[in-house]
Amino acid sequence: MQTYLDFCKFLVTEASVNNRVVIDSDLEDLIPGFIEKRQEDIQAINAAAATGDYETIINIGHNLKGIGGGYGFDRITKLGAAIEQAGKQQDGDKACELVQVMKTYLEHVEIHYE
């Protein structure tokens, strides 16, 4: 129960975060491809959760954790860490919910290049 409560708090915090990110202009041409690949990740995680393929969820989550902040998307790093954790806990539902958060975030994120 406590875990579930923590998770809800996490979602609320995530939802309330400002959607504005500032990204190095040297990375600008890489960003559309980066976001496109996250759509593939979202589909892959949903598919993996449906079949109980937690190894894939862990791997994708780990990758998101490692790359998000590097490109300027700290939120993706945080979500990736949570997805990796969900995979380790073999909690497919949680992974799907986190992926939904990421999907919404990517749809609304405001990117500024500097």
């Binding site: 040297d26 980066f34 490692g66 790359i67 590097g70």
Partner: peptide, 12 residues
Amino acid sequence: DSADSRALIKRL
């Protein structure tokens, strides 16, 4: 092994 990671590090 991550294409995103390789691209980022290379660019930086």
